[in-house]
Design a protein around this nucleic acid. Structure first.
Lengths: 134, 134
DNA sequence: ATTTGACCCTCCCCTTGGGGGAGGGTCTAT
DNA sequence: ATAGACCCTCCCCCAAGGGGAGGGTCAAAT
């Protein structure tokens, strides 16, 4: 099949399939006589693997590694697990950061009148004034 | 003061101060005779405002707007609050997404032996096999 | 048999919020 | 006078996408 159908079946845009190939995340596709990329069901399966991995937030670098482990039947699950655990840690860190932001932001918005007067604890905080509330 | 000191005092790198100026987030700095950018305490205050806003996760686009509201004494707090509330919503959405990823990832890593055998529920999931567990 | 529209190709630019470094000018302290 | 620390502009890079130009190919309808 051509790249368009592979795109529909995998859920990865045509643009990104080509970019993944360029950047070495997936192997170079076979070409037909007129230079069109040609994909098999197996290729689509690989693309779906990438798609699912992206949806779990893995970086392309991680996905490259996961793909090579997937294709390598003499892999060890320890290596796979290590990648996933590192990713879990970085996601947890990200959640913590965002939650700290949210805590501050919610406090500030709660105390902002939101009316047509200029006084605003949000701006006060951003401009470095210490919050006396709470 | 020169850009280096403004950078130290504000916590924003020299590179980024120049970039913020180029992209119109902050006004063009005055220049001295030899073309060096020159900053006042007030300019540093503005840079600190940007720094604090970034640390709360606001986009540069939002910060540009917040800055103009800050400088505008006839602003309404409603306008400020609107920006902050939108930001809160988008952060909450981001947290939700990450938490969904984490739920799946933790379930998978918990069930991965992490030994020297190749069998691995993480790879099985990524390759599209349905998880029978849970 | 030709035309039209849907594909496909490569190549380049843009995004966000940073960073590195080259090549060259300026300032200050020794 | 010279070294070292600054400063300037300009260009390139990252992730993980996207848009679009300019041109080739294929298939179906006329």
């Amino acid at each position: 099949m051509n790249i368009g159908e592979a795109s529909k079946l995998s859920g990865i845009s045509v643009k990104m399939i080509r970019k993944y190939e360029d950047s070495g995340i997936i192997p170079k596709a076979r070409r037909n006589e007129s230079g069109y990329r040609s994909y098999s069901e197996k290729d689509v399966h690989t693309l779906k693997f990438v798609k699912t991995s992206r949806s779990l937030g893995f970086s392309m670098k991680d996905i490259k590694e996961l793909l090579s482990l997937w294709k390598n039947t003499s892999r060890t699950s320890a290596n796979v697990k290590r990648i996933a655990e590192k990713h879990v840690e970085s996601l947890e860190q990200k959640v913590d950061e965002i939650n700290m932001m949210l805590k501050t932001l919610k406090h500030l918005t709660k105390n902002c009148h939101g009316d047509n007067r200029p006084n605003c604890p949000i701006l006060s905080n951003l401009s470095g004034e210490q919050d006396k509330g709470l």
